[in-house]
């Protein structure tokens, strides 16, 4: 399953590197992370990682396959 996470602020390459499995794409005042999420454990792990890095997730949605 593929997911997209919308995160506040443009995220530097340095921070984006903490999500090697996701593609980071800058949009105005926000960053879109998208990629394949293995399972639910991975999903919650990603959310925790965003939180660990002080990034606030504005929106999260499942992408059509």
């Amino acid at each position: 399953m593929r997911y997209e996470f919308r995160v506040t602020g443009s995220v530097s390459r340095l921070m984006a590197e903490a999500f090697p499995e996701l593609k980071a794409e800058p949009v105005p005042r926000q960053t879109l992370f998208s990629g394949t999420v293995t399972d639910e454990a991975h999903l919650y792990g990603l959310l925790a990682r965003f939180q660990d890095l002080g990034l606030s997730v504005r929106e999260m949605r499942r992408l059509p396959e």
Binding site: T8, G9, S10, V11, S12, L14, M15, P28, G54, L55
Partner: peptide, 11 residues
């Protein structure tokens, strides 16, 4: 800046 707070400050 429009950068995410944590990334900007850590850098």
């Amino acid at each position: 800046t429009e950068q995410a707070v944590s990334g900007y400050l850590i850098a």
